[in-house]
């Protein structure tokens, strides 16, 4: 067991974790932040995407101990105090959600994209979504939601 200090969604925590616990497991099992999902555990679906020191990563492929002294933002940390967030609103408006399991990962990827640039090109958008899988929507509505955000 190892002790780590970590800031999650602007809140500081001191946690004791086994070295083999993933950041995703830490978020879900230690902090009960279950918005980040495990779809593959292999870094290939994107459902577990969180911001790690501001950059999007696959939290299933980061160890909790590697996140010592880091800052993490999850889907739960995106909402404004009134519970809204422009990305979420765009996804809702364009019906870019079906089963919802991949959605937090997509939303985080878009947040990271908009953090990088407020005027992403089509290539930027494709790059941001490149490693995210959705089996329900066929992606059309997700693209629409993003275009709506950047227009």
């Amino acid at each position: 067991m190892q002790e780590i200090n970590i800031t999650v969604n602007s809140k500081e925590y001191t946690l004791t974790v086994p070295p083999y616990m993933s950041l995703l497991e830490m978020l879900r099992e230690k902090l009960n932040l279950t918005g980040s999902k495990e779809g593959c555990g292999n870094g290939e679906c994107g459902a577990c995407t969180v911001l790690f020191d501001g950059e999007p990563v696959r939290s299933c492929l980061v160890l909790a101990v590697e996140a010592d002294k880091s800052e993490v933002t999850t889907i739960e940390g995106l909402s404004n105090p009134d519970g809204t967030n422009p990305i979420q609103e765009a996804f809702i408006a364009e019906d870019a959600v079906q089963c919802g399991y991949c959605t937090p990962g997509f939303v985080m990827a878009v947040q990271a994209l908009l953090n990088r640039t407020s005027e992403p090109t089509d290539e930027d958008i494709k790059e941001a979504l490149g490693g995210h899988l959705c089996r329900c929507t066929g992606y059309e509505a997700i693209y629409r939601a993003i275009k709506k955000l950047v227009k």
């Binding site: 870094g43 999007p56 492929l61 980061v62 941001a128 490693g131």
Partner: peptide, 9 residues
Amino acid sequence: FGCLEIRNR
């Protein structure tokens, strides 16, 4: 290589 999130790590 991989995807953006993988490239970050």
